[in-house]
Each structure stands twice: as structure tokens, then as C-alpha cells.
Design a protein around this nucleic acid. Structure first.
Lengths: 380, 380
DNA sequence: GAATTTTATGCAATCGGTTGCGTAACGGGT
DNA sequence: ACCCGTTACGCAACCGATTGCATAAAATTC
């Protein structure tokens, strides 16, 4: 009680000044003691710490940020669009960031907007950097503006060679290629593709990788529909695919959310999975593991993606002139029941599910999890 | 461009000082002009604005926060636990907050932790307030600490009468009561309940409301299992319920994620929904609308919950001595195919789905949405 | 014991805004 | 011409830390 004009009814928090007054030393000594500067004697250091603890001192990050020119906050830019995968993994982002003693500020750009819309916020709060989801509309100019004003940018699942932004990506091309191989090995002859939102790099890569994988075996896409990375889009796309004659016997939906919709559409058409038709997705969202779907997919290793992003960001904060880089990490194929399992893969399945090189993105599961038998289950 | 020691390679941002120097007026004049203080002549005001625009001036929120003692940031405290409903609605929170020209800082507390763990961050960044999800472990002391230090707290879906925290809740009691009535009207005779995490207020309310609803008709719960608000928990709980003889003919799973698991477990047991057994959930997560589930549920009006939360917070920021209050809003019953529809409700269905009193939480749907025919569909 | 190095601390400026108070200039009334 | 009330703006303190430089005290060297 009794800070002269504290925050309303609340008590005002203790400051360095109070500690220094209480101890009869200077502000600077307190400041240095608090952060373990070695030019401070162990004795006064201990005394300062004691009083700080007693008073419940919390350094004012705002004031510190003003002089250090580091806010300690990084921005996480999301799109208005639903993006189940990263929504689900938000928790991991926060975990990694707080491990570095930093904070996450959430910024959102509208579907018909641009990264530029949130730049004022980024600049006003002097963010130390930002991580931008692939679903966010981003112009080169906007990214350039960020870096020009000293806000390092890391793009998730997207690159922008003309800018100074770094990138961390789950290798969509390689993953999709792998899916193509898997489907071919499974003996499928009419392999269809459901594309994502156009002019999205990730959509492009997944399509290109898939086509490349097919081409390597002298094959090509039997049919192609657009699904816009949404459930409804995937549903409609599948309806259209199912109306073809002959009907496709496999569908690669380039995102899990579309793949789940595909499974629903297939089921409604009275067809069986994977007997009549195989479905594979990409992302590894939680729902893909649910018994109703048991979707074979490639899981993006969210933990790694975030960790690398923050690595890149902090490195860039330390050394602003560090050249941008792009890190690719591989996804983990989760072989479940939605696609016919090629001979030989039954054994690999278990292994593929948990590669030793990287933590599994969907690792921690409760013991009695209905989704525990991830491989080999052929009934959908 | 030579700010003397800008942020690394980046140009340093213009300041009030630069503007004032450029125009030959004082800092104070610039500051006042920028925020439309009326003691500034229209002429200089325009001149200041012009230069500010030309220089691309962005006020330093950090510096401002130092003196105004308002950071302009509110904390959004989430739990480590997966919480599909609020994850999905994050976008709405951000939208409402940015509409008030504020920012959202994401804070996370571990499952075995407490709100107290993030209080240092809240205090260091001098958050103007915080919104706390129901899934976050919170002690009374922690909440008291927040309010004592001038950080107003709004609890979502939970109350804490002993503290000065305000609350915004979707009326779990009333909703569950309504579900009980619905199931009874549907002619069910063995009505089972899947409970949430114990010592969670929301779990308690949903159970109490449900029991009250049954009791009003002289009925009671036929069986009860715990599902811990998780998919796996709901799945196991359902297995146990299905092993009873006679088997329940209706299940109210007190969260959607458990209800979806219930539907999966039921399907795997070879039973049909709703012919053999009806299932109802609570929350209104996106997946509840998917064709594989078509879950009848009560949707929490996220938009309203967030809006009221922010209202409460800003009111409290304006007047710190404002007494705490609790706002209850009703959920919207979404009648879909997972539960037998009682006679009379077919007509009501459409109406119940979109009450005029409140915006529908799951309103905006793409035109060709497979989930558009929300009512009347009896096949699961 | 004097000179020199090392160690521990203080002074004061600084970050970039905001704001209470003081005052010059101006216009109008008589 | 004098008084007075506005109007428009400047001065300087302040918010709460950090930090370069100066300096007093202690330790070391010769």
C-alpha cells in the first residue's frame, strides 16, 4: 500500500530505486547485482537479492525494453483462416518461446489483408522478431519493411528468396513424393489429387512433389480437384472425384483437413476405405488419429519447426547481419488404416512411425489411447 | 540513413524528437498534436501529421507504456492441455482485442503448474489485464496476487467468488439441463453421463445441471463414467458404458471431444447412432459438424464470451475499483443427427440452431458446406 | 610505504514518450 | 490604452530500468 499513484487500487510494484534506497546503495549497483554482474561483491549481491525477494521485485520489462531496445517479445502472426494444425500446436510454440525467456504476442491478419496490416503493431511494440504462418497473406514489401526496421522474420512452410526472411519448412515436396511412392507401391492405378489454395507455396510444393513422385514411376495424376485447404472444399472436391468413371482408387488430399472430408464423402457414397479407395493426407492433425478416420498421413514435426524457428530468430537478433537461411525438416509418415498398405510396408510401418532422427510430432499419448496401434490396422 | 545506433542493420524508427526538430516545435507539441489534443492549432497539427506520415512514424508503445502505466497488452492464459474449443476460437479473441487497439500476449501454464507460474511475466510486462481459460490450474492466491498488483482478471467458464476476478461463462448448468430434457423427450430410458476432469468447475456444473434436468422429470443418471475431457478418456469411458447390461440408450458426454470419442467407440462396437444409442456433447467444436459425427451439442458462443471478457477487462482497467461481476451467456443447441430427435423438436430444430438473441457461434459457413443441413438429418 | 592494479560502487545520461504548469501572443470589451 | 480570458505552445520532470565512465577503497607489487 502506498505507492504514490500505483495502478488504481492495486499496490504499485517495487522498483530498483526502492531496493537501492532500502539498502543505501545506488540504482546501478542494484541493477548490476540483480543480473549477476561480476563487478559486484558477493556480499552486496546477496543483500540486494534478499531485499528483492522480500519486496517481491519484478523488473519492469517495459522500462528495460526502452533502454536495451529489446522488447523480449516475438510476434506470432496467424491468419484469420482456420488452420487446425498450427492451432493445435500453439502450446509447443509457447513452450519453446518461454524456455528462451521471451514472450509471444499474437497478431492476426484478415483473409483479404496482408502482413502489412500488422506491421504498425510490430513496430510500436518493437518486437524482437516474428514467426509467420504459411496461411498468412504476405507481400514481399511487407516482409522487407519488417527486416528493414530491424524485425527479423521467420516464415513457416514458405520461402521468399527476394527478401531477408529466413524459413523453416516441413519438406512438402519430399513428403508428397513419398506418398506417391507409397500409393504406387500399394498397387493403385487411378490416383487422384486434391490441391490446396492456389498461389500458396505449400500447395504448390505438395502438388509438385506428388507429381514428381508419380513421374518417377512413369505415372501421372489421374484426376485433380481443388479443395482450398478447407473441410468443405475437400468434401466437394471428393464428390466430384467420385463421380468420375472409372472412379479413382486412391486420393491424396494435400492437407489432413481435406483428407478427413474426403473420407466422409467416400463413406457417404457407400464406399469402403481402403478396399474401394485409399486416402492419404498431409499434416498430422489430431483428428487424423481418431478411429473414425485413422488417416494415413505425413505429420509435420511441429516441435522441431518451432524450435528451429526460434533458433533462427534468436540468432538473427544476436547478429542482425546474419544471412537468411532456410531449414527443411522431414515429416514422419504415419501409416494407419485409410490407405492400402503395400507389401513390405507392414514391417516398416512401426519403424516409419517413429523415426529416431527426430522426435515424433504426435508423441505423447495417454497409455490407454484408442489411437495407439498406429500401424497395421487395415479396417477403417 | 543514420539513426546513430539503430537496431542492428535496420534503420531506427523516427521519434517524436525527430519530428519536433524537423518542424522546429517542442516534443510536447508533437506529442499532443499526434493524439489530437485540442489545445493544438489546426495548422501545426496538420504539419506534424504530415511529417509523421512522411517519416513513417510509429509511436513507441514501450516508451509510452512506461509513463502511462498502460502496456496496452492483455494476457491470454492457456493450459498445456489440449482444449480444442478455445484453440479454434483464438482468432475471434484476437479480432476483438485488436478492435480495442490492444494486443494479446500468450501465456501458458503447465498441467501440473499454477497460474502463479506466469505471474512474473504478467507483472514484468505490466499487462493491463488477463483472460484465463477454464482449463488452466488456478489458485485463489494467484488470482489475488494478480488483482492486488493491478492486473484485472477475467475467468472464462469459471467463477471464484472469494477473489476480485470477474467471470464470463457459458451457462453449463442450464445447457446441460436442456440436454437432459431433450433426451427425456426423446424417450430414452437409460441415460448415461460421461464426466469431465474432477475438481473442474465446468465439469461440476455440467453434471449438476444434467442431474437437475433429469431430476425435474423424476429421473436420474443410469450410469456415470469419467472421461477427463479428453478423447482417449471419453473413448474408454464409453467402452465401459457399453459393457453394461442393459446397455445405456443415451449418453451425454460433457464435452464434444469426449462425445466424438463416444461415437467412435459406439461405431466400433457395431452399434448404430441414434437408433441404438443417442449421443450428445457440449461445446460446439468444429469437428462436431463433420459428417462422420454430426453431433448434437450445445455450442458455446465464443464470440460473445470473448467480447464480454474484453468488455469486463476494459471496464476494470478504466475503473480499477469496479466490483467484479459474472456474466452468463447461453449456448445454442445444435440439433444434428447423433441423438434421437423428440417429436416436436423437428420443427424447433431450425429455430434452436440460430437463436435471434445471440449470434451463432458457428455461424459463417461456406456456401457449399456439407454441414449446412444442421437439423433433421437422422443418419449418422 | 609508495605506486599500481584490481575490485566495487556511484553519477548521470539515456531510451522515447507524456503531462502539469507556466507563459507569450492574441483578440475582444470598455 | 488597459485589463482579461483564451489559445497555442514550451519547459522540464518523470516513468524504471541500463550502462559508460569516473572514482573510492582494497589488494597487490616492488
Amino acid at each position: 500500500m502506498g505507492g504514490k499513484r500505483g495502478r488504481g487500487s492495486g499496490g504499485s510494484l517495487p522498483t530498483v530505486d526502492m531496493i537501492s534506497a532500502r539498502l543505501g546503495v545506488s540504482k546501478s549497483t542494484v541493477s548490476r547485482a540483480l543480473k549477476g554482474h561480476r563487478s559486484i561483491s558477493e556480499k552486496t549481491r546477496a543483500a540486494v537479492m534478499a531485499i528483492a525477494r522480500e519486496l517481491g521485485y519484478q523488473p519492469n520489462a517495459i522500462a528495460r525494453g526502452l533502454v536495451t531496445r529489446r522488447s523480449g517479445i516475438i510476434g506470432f502472426v496467424i491468419a484469420e483462416t482456420e488452420n487446425p494444425f498450427f492451432e493445435e500446436q500453439l502450446e509447443k510454440l509457447t513452450k519453446h518461446v518461454s524456455r528462451r525467456e521471451m514472450q509471444v504476442l499474437l497478431l492476426q491478419v484478415a483473409t483479404n489483408g496482408d502482413l502489412a496490416d500488422v506491421i504498425p503493431s510490430m513496430l510500436q511494440y518493437r518486437l524482437d522478431g516474428c514467426i509467420i504462418l504459411a496461411s498468412v497473406p504476405v507481400s514481399k514489401e511487407a516482409v522487407a519493411t519488417c527486416t528493414r526496421y530491424g524485425v527479423p522474420v521467420v516464415l513457416l512452410n514458405r520461402t521468399m528468396p527476394e527478401t531477408k526472411a529466413s524459413s523453416v519448412l516441413c519438406n512438402s515436396f519430399a513428403g508428397s513424393q513419398r506418398i506417391a511412392e507409397f500409393l504406387i507401391a500399394g498397387g493403385h492405378s487411378r490416383i487422384a489429387f486434391i490441391a490446396g489454395r492456389q498461389n500458396s507455396i505449400i500447395a504448390h510444393d505438395r502438388e509438385a512433389g506428388f507429381r514428381a513422385g508419380l513421374a518417377a514411376a512413369g505415372r501421372e495424376i489421374y484426376a485433380r480437384e481443388e479443395g482450398g485447404f478447407t473441410f468443405a472444399g475437400g468434401y466437394q472436391a471428393t464428390k466430384r472425384l467420385l463421380s468420375l468413371t472409372p472412379r479413382p482408387d486412391a486420393i491424396f488430399a494435400s492437407s489432413d483437413i481435406m483428407a478427413l472430408a474426403a473420407l466422409d464423402a467416400i463413406r457417404e457414397a457407400g464406399l469402403r476405405v481402403p478396399d474401394d479407395i485409399s486416402v492419404i493426407g498431409f499434416d498430422g492433425i489430431r483428428a487424423s488419429a481418431w478411429p473414425a478416420y485413422r488417416l494415413t498421413t505425413i505429420a509435420q514435426p511441429a516441435d522441431i519447426l518451432f524450435e528451429r524457428s526460434i533458433d533462427l530468430l534468436t540468432a538473427r537478433i544476436e547478429d542482425p547481419n546474419r544471412p537468411p537461411e532456410a531449414i527443411y525438416v522431414h515429416g514422419n509418415m504415419l501409416i494407419r488404416g485409410s490407405a492400402r498398405i503395400p507389401p513390405g510396408y507392414e514391417l516398416l510401418a512401426e519403424h516409419l512411425d517413429r523415426p529416431s532422427s527426430a522426435e515424433n510430432a504426435t508423441a505423447q499419448k495417454p497409455p490407454d489411447d484408442p489411437m495407439k496401434h498406429d500401424a497395421g490396422e487395415r479396417r477403417a
